[in-house]
Design a protein around this nucleic acid. Sequence first.
DNA 1: GATATAAAGTTATAATATAACAATTATTAC
DNA 2: GTAATAATTGTTATATTATAACTTTATATC
Lengths: 172, 172
Amino acid sequence: MAFTFQSKHDHGSCIKSALANAEQICADHNQRFTKIRRLVLELIWQSHKPLGAYELLPAIKQAGFNSAPPTVYRALEFLQEQGLVHRISSLNAFIGCSHPGHQGSSCFLICDQCQLAVEVESPVLASAIGDLSAEMGFVIEREHLEIVGKCRHCCSSKTKEVANKSPNIPCG
Amino acid sequence: MAFTFQSKHDHGSCIKSALANAEQICADHNQRFTKIRRLVLELIWQSHKPLGAYELLPAIKQAGFNSAPPTVYRALEFLQEQGLVHRISSLNAFIGCSHPGHQGSSCFLICDQCQLAVEVESPVLASAIGDLSAEMGFVIEREHLEIVGKCRHCCSSKTKEVANKSPNIPCG
DNA sequence: GATATAAAGTTATAATATAACAATTATTAC
DNA sequence: GTAATAATTGTTATATTATAACTTTATATC
């Protein structure tokens, strides 16, 4: 079941399926899912929050790997190429792909209070974008669709004024 | 007439109307449209290509202003607050707003060959985004909708392989 | 004209990302 | 199984983008 800002969900199974998908996709693509790549994917999946590359470095160091920036950027680049990770450019941050292997437009809803983000696949959105591009003869190569606002929990919470600090739901 | 990747258009009138709009909007908002703010807006409007902040610094220096980064970032921040400039986060670059004062979703079509970008307002897109957000109880604050690909000129051009270098239409 | 406010100048540095080359590990060909 | 090749990772250095903090100047308000 997809994550949609619900306060409780089995995040262990999110991680587990992300890793299983990654194994499969790398195998299909004849790509090596090395230890550092797996570690970076695990770290990215520790939450549904987009994380900055530099935030991952301490854990990488702790795991005994070289923790210079190229280490994490290379792994993230690989994971993006395999469609396992997305870059949220408005945040300079990275998030695990919720629909690996799928085609079509992915749109991110990003809560600026609790920082959680949800990846949404919408055929209606995809066709709207397809249409407006086609009208101009524009050929799409990639999309960055990022919507920033308040998730339903933060929206109704009384801590709105203390923005960007306290998540209003348990799962980080 | 709005710019939509057409090879020829009266870019002087793009600039002129952008500046006239800016005057009006700043006046309406009781904000000061200072020389440096005007200069930065003019520089941004020299083309329909998103430009990096640092790219503007030489011209700012030539015009006799302080050309340290804060100068241009402050002006760009002001212009964004007034809705006169947009940041294209996937490029770390800035572009003049084609529809200042308008409400609703703006989406950018960005050609990765000639670097030109077009801002599109689409009610269909806006409603698709409104719907998918509403389904999740998500309240939108801002949107970053960036579509990267090839404009119709670059798409059909034979110089595709020399990507990101030569624009295939005259207007920079 | 004095005071307060906003804007711009200036210096320094933070945050994000990549280049370039060396060392290591895995794969392939024999 | 070993040599040659290719891919990955380690390492150092640096590029690019952006902001913090404080000073000076200009504008607006009283």
